[in-house]
Simulated scan of single mutants.
Amino acid sequence: MRTGRKRLSGRSQACPVDERRRGRAIMSTATKLLCLRPADPIRLETRRTAMPRPGKGEVLVRVEATSVNPIDVKRARGYGQRLLSHKGAGKFPLVLGNDFAGEIVSVGAGVSPWRPGDRVMGLVPTGRKGGAHATHLTVDARLVRTAVDGVASAALAAFPYTFTTLWLALRGAGINEGNAKAQKVLVHGASGGLGQLALQILAAWGASVTAICSTANIELCRNLGATAVWDRTRCRLQELPEHFDAGLNFGAWEDEATLIGRLRHGALGYVTAVHPLLGNIDRGGLLAGAWRSRLDWRRMQSLANAKGARYRWIIFQPDEGALDMLHHFLARGALTLSVGVSVSIDNADLAFEHVANHKQGRAILLPMGALSS
């Protein structure tokens, strides 16, 4: 194995070296977690690279924590590769991850008000530059926010991607703080990260939320603010009443038509984050997959139109307004997402397995742990 690369085995592969020389090497290099190729089981490797430098409008962040989201596991297995390749983000080996929390090391030209030493959190777009699973990364300063005092980096890193996706979903469904009070909202997949945040925010806004989850997660959903819980393992979704003002599907595309049917006439809107766009393109290619997706979308839109509701598919993209609201909620102590596992990127396979096996709690990588191995 060549110097600078390490297979994930849980043991250091480095030879003893002079500590002063090793320290200088660490300061001049970064470590990235690479997904080598689309495969199941997932193939990961850490690799030393030159320390990145911030360009105009960018900051260099020393990453203290970053999360492994379900989309990272799916992408590591090849999901979305055909479409994302057109954005320069689907070519393997690739660096996954979108969330980070850490400390600014340096700033590029035109950056204000950030300074080296500032503790921050933020988002990395899905694109050519790679993701957040690294010890250091450069990121657009507009996608960085001040870390909330008293909240550990491992906790902060669980939020940006999931909260941003949820915020886009709420906006797509037409739900906001001003109109949510007493609205009946149906949340499918309520025990996942998106669902948990939805329950907390909607409850804080005064909405009446029905959470769809499994028997094992009923108490969790109630504790997070659900007004009612529908046990999907014991009750058919078709038995839900048709009185909901809005619907959020974070669970399964196969339930889409049934859930839209639970809306009342004159409902606000319905949003899904589990649409088949990327999967259709993976299976059929760009043109055929896009056409298949258009047919799927139009079929569901017609069902929503019959209820008088707006209909949206959500695709993640960084949103500055969402990051502002995330900081607002966290500063108030109004959000929680439990962390199930925190590991060094040298043991990242444990974090990916945690997510792949749908275990409770977020999976967090601690990239700076790589410097001690």
Rank of each mutant, 00 (worst) to 15 (best):
A134N: 06
A134M: 07
H136C: 07
L137F: 09
T138P: 01
V139F: 08
D140I: 13
A141L: 03
L143G: 03
V144Q: 02
R145W: 06
A147T: 12
V148Q: 05
D149Q: 13
G150W: 15
V151E: 10
S153N: 13
A157C: 10
A157K: 13
F159Q: 08
F159R: 11
Y161G: 02
T162A: 14
T162K: 02
T164V: 06
L166C: 08
W167H: 14
L168Y: 12
A169H: 11
A169W: 14
A169N: 09
L170N: 12
G174E: 12
E177A: 15
E177G: 15
G178S: 08
N179Y: 11
A180G: 08
K181D: 13
K181F: 15
K181C: 14
V185T: 03
V185L: 05
L186G: 12
A190V: 09
G192Q: 04
G193Y: 09
L194I: 15
L194C: 07
A198G: 12
A198Q: 08
Q200V: 05
Q200P: 07
I201N: 10
L202G: 07
A203K: 07
A204H: 08
A204T: 04
W205V: 11
W205G: 01
W205F: 07
A207P: 02
A207E: 11
I212D: 03
I212G: 01
C213A: 15
C213M: 03
C213S: 05
T215A: 09
A216Y: 12
N217H: 14
I218N: 03
I218W: 11
T227N: 09
V229D: 00
V229E: 10
W230E: 02
D231I: 01
T233G: 06
R234I: 00
R234F: 11
R236S: 03
L237Y: 03
E239T: 00
P241T: 00
D245L: 12
